[in-house]
């Protein structure tokens, strides 16, 4: 198996790919990027917290015009993963309003972004219908 690198540092690869949030130890607020202090309570200590890989689609759009290099149309959405909101594309689904349903159960899935000149494969994530 060639070496792999995640699209973002909060995607943990391995046998059971999942997202990892920075969780405020004082109030439990979760963030996917680093914080100097918590936006909710201003405390300064965080721990890593695994985010549920199953969720429910709470909002979506089907994007037809996007930045150069992004294939369209694609589905962008917000997934409620057991109380933690996650921003993601919705993948492995027809990008049509008939196929995508608000409230539908979804689960984390990964896909290859390609292999670079060093043979390293980048892995992205999305949520797919469960």
């Amino acid at each position: 198996m060639s070496a792999q690198i995640p699209l973002v540092d909060y995607l943990a690869l391995g046998d059971r790919p999942h997202l990892v949030a920075h969780e405020c130890t004082a109030c439990g607020a979760r963030f996917f990027d680093r914080r100097n202090a918590c936006a909710s309570c201003s405390a300064t200590e965080f721990r890593d917290a695994d985010v549920a890989t199953d969720g429910e689609l709470r909002a979506y759009t089907i994007v037809s015009f996007a930045a150069p290099g992004i294939p369209v149309p694609f589905v962008a959405g917000v997934v409620d993963c057991a109380g933690t909101s996650v921003r993601s594309n919705i993948i492995n689904v027809d990008p049509t309003p008939e196929a995508v349903r608000l409230g539908m159960p979804v689960r984390l899935a990964t896909y290859s972004l390609g292999i670079d000149d060093d043979g390293v494969e980048a892995i992205g994530f999305g949520f797919e219908p469960a």
């Binding site: 973002v8 990027d33 996007a66 962008a76 959405g77 993601s88």
Partner: peptide
Amino acid sequence: RYGSVAGVDGRIGT
């Protein structure tokens, strides 16, 4: 901030 290896706009939502 996300240690991303490619643009996230369009790959992780919009």
